[in-house]
């Protein structure tokens, strides 16, 4: 049976709250309101106020509290309403959560999960449409998960909660209503590895999160048996699974990276650089990128659409590259 990405996140969260005795959810409007994206709808009634904690509007405070609770032996799941507000908590996320283990000479472990929605596309303008997951992937000490499918949304949290390191999960705002089949008992699941969503020999298309469904749709639209495209879903931005990327390029010799973040100093730039450093001789064509336009997100629908890579942009870029094949 098909379920939504939202329902998948909800099932994953519920499973963890039931199975992990010391887990709890803390964040703004996770309880009485039911979660801004309704992921924790009815959880307050089911689990009580100790496990589902409605936090004051204090991103630094409740993220820091989560770190302390993790140090003290609990398994906190901190929900920051959106990635945009995570900027307020960056000091805690970076200077404390990411660094404390290293700074303490390996004594301290911080089994902390921070979930947040990310991405643009809902006409929320500049302050509510950021994609900072690639930016946070700059930081040693953090693991960055970006579920793009219903199944990943269902199962990633379990791994994050059982990881002794701080793990950030970015749930894309445009994916909440997508529906797909979901295996409740999936085997060989490793969220830290990239996965090939579609195999092909003509070109490697690298993407993740909210851009992945657009990439798969674009590939579908230009499907041609002679120019089959391989689609890689990164799933985890740090640590980055280079092996899957390099293996694919050895076969296809062409790469397009589609990332919702800005180009400058970005994850797409990092991936591109690593490809040049490690498999330059495999390339028959310069690495290409489709990214967010270098502007704060505009409100007007047509302008917002122009700022984010769309299916038609991906189709055009793929055709451009494939004519060269």
């Amino acid at each position: 049976m098909k379920i939504s990405y939202r329902e998948a996140l909800k099932r994953g969260l519920r499973e963890v709250l039931i199975n992990e005795k010391n887990s709890f959810l803390i964040g703004e409007d996770v309880g009485a309101y039911g979660g801004t994206y309704a992921v924790s709808q009815d959880f307050l009634k089911e689990f009580g106020a100790e496990k589902i904690m409605d936090a004051p509007l204090s991103e630094v405070g409740f993220t820091g509290l989560g770190i302390g609770a993790a140090l003290g032996g609990l398994k906190p799941i901190v929900e920051i309403m959106t990635v945009n507000f995570s900027l307020l908590a960056l000091d805690q996320i970076i200077n404390s959560a990411a660094f404390m283990r290293y700074m303490s000479g390996g004594q301290i472990t911080i089994p902390l999960v921070i979930r947040m929605t990310t991405g643009g596309g809902r006409q929320l303008a500049a302050q509510h449409s950021n994609s900072f997951e690639g930016w946070l992937a700059h930081i040693p000490g953090l693991k960055i998960l970006v579920p793009a499918t219903v199944e990943d949304a269902r199962h990633m949290l379990r791994f994050a909660v059982n990881d002794p390191n701080p793990v950030l999960i970015f749930e894309h705002a445009m994916l909440f209503n997508i529906k797909d089949e979901c295996d409740e008992a999936v085997k060989d699941f490793n969220p830290y590895n990239a996965t090939v969503r579609r195999t092909g020999k003509a070109l490697t298309l690298i993407s993740y999160g909210g851009m992945l469904p657009k990439c798969l749709q674009a590939v579908e639209e230009i499907y041609d048996a002679k120019t089959e495209i391989e689609v890689i879903d990164l799933r985890c931005l740090r640590p980055l699974d280079e092996k899957t990327i390099f293996q694919s390029i050895a076969k296809t010799h062409h790469v397009l990276i589609v990332d919702e973040g800005w180009k400058s100093g970005s994850l797409s730039a990092e991936i591109s650089a690593r490809i040049m450093e490690c498999c330059f001789s495999d390339l028959d064509f310069p690495v290409q990128r489709l990214c967010r336009k270098e502007v704060p997100m505009p409100y007007a629908k047509h302008m917002e659409e122009a700022a984010i890579p769309q299916v038609k942009d991906i189709v055009r870029k793929l055709q451009e590259m494939l004519y060269e094949v």
């Binding site: 405070g61 509290l65 003290g72 032996g73 000091d91």
Partner: peptide, 25 residues
């Protein structure tokens, strides 16, 4: 002894979390 925190005030919410953990456990 949980630091040794060199960002002014950043350790204060950690203490709240540590105390909450001790309370719950």
């Amino acid at each position: 002894f949980f630091g040794g925190c060199a960002i002014v005030a950043a350790g204060i919410p950690h203490a709240v979390g540590l105390a909450m953990a001790a309370q719950r456990l």
